[in-house]
Design a protein around this nucleic acid. Structure first.
Lengths: 203, 203
DNA sequence: ATATTTCGTGAACGCATGTTCATAAATTAG
DNA sequence: CTAATTTATGAACATGCGTTCACGAAATAT
């Protein structure tokens, strides 16, 4: 492909600039309150330039979301050794998402919020990348059930939802602690899995 | 007070009409996409009439939310026997919220989108009724920790958040099943507590 | 060097929506 | 019954924002 022409490279640079600004605006203001004007301004382009690269506001939002999700999924899959058992898969999944979220806080806020129109759970499952994440988790939980790490009386899809929500909750909790002396998110891995697998009663 | 004058009664009737329409619009369209015009139209009043009863859109929303939350909290507190232990408190809390949600599906949808904001923008925790719910749950979880139903290594506030989110997830899950042959929400009580207390590993 | 094409710009446009307010209807007071 | 007061109405207003597009600049081709 022509991915290495100067023209194409410039195009990608512009898209990246716009993505960066959009990500921050969507994170801080939410979808509805974020404006194309402000995104363009932060990216140091004119309004029209944004529309040269994205059909409209919605396309920009979805495109950005897919892009970041894709990178996150790749990070997870690349760090997942072959033939690892269900417990290990869960651990690696949690560790890698936490790492990604910690380095992409704006994206995390987008991931978590934006329940405005559709609930995140629903939107997630409609986009291609959302289905990929969902399928990935379904397979993992199902494997965990086969290996008796998770009981088979639970509905697999429901466990996926509960899992994502526990993860979201713990990250949000961490996100809202005072910035000062905050420990790394990575340390929350075990906690999340403990909530999921053993619940809150004594060990 | 003059709560029984005809005037006051009419006033309350109008407020109730507007609440009903607003509740449905906010639930179906979300805060931003719900319009005063449509709310007024559904309630069969003119736009200006809405403003006779509520300062602005935000006041209407908050007022509605507080009203419904207050009723929910009352239902819970009225059905809570004195001197019941932590496990019992949790059971009753779940049972009563499920009953309320099942009969107020529109409110549940508002509650869900607000619950995310609760953690993000802390809107809920600033309202009196929000604090009441929060305090109530904090006390209950703390009692559960005293009675060793929930381990003390967990942060009480975090457990509250996880609890609310598990409840939310299971209700949403139920909400999104096909309407046909759907069983009552009430039956999900045990499931929710099992997620919270024992997690998903075998019993 | 000139013509042609592509790209960048931001003022202007259209539309949606929250809010107001002059006017009218209804209610209450005298 | 009439005047005064309260309440209801919805057209009009103000604002904000997504989107377009005529124009000019820059890059490319001739």
């Amino acid at each position: 492909m022509a991915a290495f022409s100067r023209k194409e490279r410039d195009r990608q640079l512009r898209r990246a600039d716009i993505y960066r600004a959009a990500e921050h605006q969507f994170a801080v203001r939410g979808y509805h309150r974020a404006t194309i004007r402000e995104i363009a301004k932060q990216a140091q382009y004119a309004i029209g330039t944004v529309y040269l690269h994205f059909k409209d506001k919605d396309a920009l939002y979805l495109s950005l979301f897919e892009e970041k999700m894709k990178v996150m999924m790749s990070a997870i899959e690349e760090n997942m050794p072959a033939g690892v058992d269900a417990k290990g898969r869960l651990e690696i999944f949690v560790r890698e998402s936490l790492a990604y979220f910690e380095e992409n806080l704006d994206f995390f806020r987008i991931f978590v919020s934006e329940a405005d129109r559709l609930l995140m759970e629903v939107r997630l499952k409609r986009t291609p990348i959302g289905r990929r994440l969902n399928k990935y988790l379904m397979d993992t939980i199902r494997q965990a059930q086969e290996e008796k790490v998770i009981s088979k009386d639970f509905d697999t899809e429901q466990v996926v939802d509960v899992f994502i929500n526990i993860l979201k909750t713990v990250v949000l909790d961490w996100f809202q602690e005072g910035k000062k002396g905050k420990r790394s998110l990575a340390g929350k891995s075990d906690l999340i899995l403990r909530y999921l697998l053993k619940g809150t009663s004594g060990r």
